[in-house]
Nucleic acid binder design. Structure first.
Length: 450
RNA sequence: UCCUGCGUAGCUCAAUGGUAGAGUAGGUGACUGUUAAUCACUUGGUUGUAGGUUCGAGUCCUACCGCAGGAGCCA
């Protein structure tokens, strides 16, 4: 391949260079010496390979620089690629030369165990570790799969703004900032309202970007800044919406299986669980889910006025919490969509079911293995007057939503969409036990550094 | 915001109210196949902070600080 910029032989491609002398550029992952032998594990961002140096075979200076290598020292190592049955990757490098760029001193992260706090304070270095490296590569494949899926199915990317003049769903959990002379602005918690306008212009669109929630959530599935992809489709009803969500998630999972075998092995992921993620997924209505909870004796903890807690049958109309979702998902080996939630617990823009106005045409997709909600979506209210009524009922500032109401005045159509949380999805697919591991630099309530 | 738990060596942890320890990392030495190498020697401490109880506090009490994960909220 000709290139205007430098191209290196990468560790990932070493098996194509057996018998050749190559130079690898990277960092020392680990080193151990046994007498006249030095074993240097070199990582170059694409993978890790063991480089073997037998000191009598090289000049004194090279032998000395091998002995001086420390963890994370930057080096270029030249050597001959050799097939090696004892190597996990099948190849090794017989070292003939070493160029040291910079000696790394007292690298804080040893190959041994570390606590969460220590690792989070060293997130900028933790990313170099094998497990984090594998997760980040899966994340990149998930994002690419999302883009490929939409780009290949007639969708256009239409990004939504990040500064917004008002709360999208009327809640008070947004990050606030001063916006010149125009008063307060907020960081978006969803690009959806803008995606609806975009869908009326381009038909099938998706918006993909960061999203901000100022909620003081402190769990292993919440971030204050996370990435969300939000497709929005004109002339799609709720069933179309659910079908699309299934297609997307199946495509993402199968794409990771196809492209990330090595990474999933590093992570110790049981791939048979992912192979099972094939359409059709499970579906049940909210009402069926409530019946299931009560039939299976899954109670709701309710706080009394005196502070004590009692357990009650799950009442129709209450929103599900994590315990209910987890109980429902224990019976399933692949995702399940729960649809038609009570109108009262859902956002103002969701269309009411014409056959039963007590429920909204909403749907959530729950992933198995305790991963929880990865998608939330709905068919949108397309009737101007009903939407206006809902806005007023929620006490939202109608003037700020005038442009949004316009969409229902000038050629309104049935339309639907959903949001898929990228980090929740990567957490599920990689089997990571905490969401902070699946984004390079997590933003959480008590942590903004590094 | 509420509830629960934790804070001891660079890191991971131990220590019945009675002399602060181990493993590991780091340093020195030995070794031609290591994969968390092994072996020998070795450096390393204001027990989160402030107060209190006690003859005596890492340990018990109070407050504060920091961290963790559960609730609520949600993707």
């Amino acid at each position: 391949m000709t290139s205007r910029y430098k191209s290196f032989v990468s560790v990932e491609d070493l098996h194509q260079h057996v018998g050749q002398e190559v130079t690898l550029n990277g960092w020392v992952y680990d080193k151990t010496e046994k007498g006249k032998l030095a074993f240097i594990k070199l990582r170059d961002g694409s993978g890790t390979v063991q480089c073997v140096l037998f000191k009598p075979n090289v000049d004194e200076a090279t032998a000395a620089s091998a002995s001086a290598l420390t963890q994370e020292t930057s080096v270029s190592i030249t050597g001959t690629v050799r097939e090696e049955a004892r190597s996990p990757t099948g190849v090794e490098l017989d070292v003939t030369g070493i160029k040291v760029w910079q000696i790394s001193q007292d690298y804080p992260i040893s190959p041994k165990e570390h606590g969460v706090e220590f690792l989070m304070e060293h997130r900028h270095l933790w990313l170099r570790s094998a497990r984090q490296h594998a997760i980040m590569r899966v994340r990149a494949v998930v994002v690419k799969a999302i883009r490929d899926f939409f780009d290949g199915n007639g969708f256009r990317l239409m990004d939504s703004p990040i500064f917004t003049p008002n709360a999208c769903e009327g809640t008070s959990t947004l990050f606030e900032t001063e916006y010149f002379d125009l008063g307060k602005a907020y960081l978006t918690q969803s690009g959806q309202l803008y995606a609806e306008a975009s869908a009326m212009a381009l038909g099938k669109v998706y918006t993909f970007g960061p999203t901000f929630r100022a909620e003081k959530s402190k769990t292993r599935r919440h971030l204050t800044e996370f990435w969300m992809v939000e497709p929005e489709m004109a002339y799609f009803d709720l069933n179309d919406d659910m079908d699309l969500a299934e297609d997307l998630v199946e495509y993402i999972v199968q794409s990771v299986l196809k492209n990330c075998a090595k990474e999933l092995a590093t992570l110790g992921r049981d791939v048979s669980k992912l192979e099972a993620v094939r359409r059709p997924f499970y579906r049940m209505s909210y009402t069926e889910a409530v019946e299931w909870l009560n039939k299976n004796n899954v109670k709701l903890n309710r706080k009394q006025t005196d502070g004590s807690e009692i357990q009650i049958d799950f009442p129709w109309g209450e929103d599900f919490g994590a315990p209910q979702e987890e109980a429902i998902m224990q019976q399933f080996d692949k995702p399940c969509i729960i649809h038609r939630y009570p109108t009262e617990v859902k956002a103002f823009y969701m269309k009411r079911d014409p056959e039963d106005p007590k429920v909204a045409m909403a749907m959530d997709m729950l992933a198995p293995e305790g991963a929880g909600e990865i998608i939330g979506g709905s068919q949108r209210e397309d009737n101007h007057d009903w939407l206006l009524e809902r806005l007023q009922h929620e006490g939202l500032p109608v003037a700020a939503f005038q442009w949004y109401l316009d969409l229902r005045k000038y050629g309104s159509v049935p339309h639907s969409g959903f949001g898929l949380g990228v980090e929740r999805t990567v957490k599920w697919i990689t089997g990571a036990d905490h969401i902070r591991e699946v984004i390079p630099f997590p933003r959480m309530i008590y942590r903004i550094v590094p």
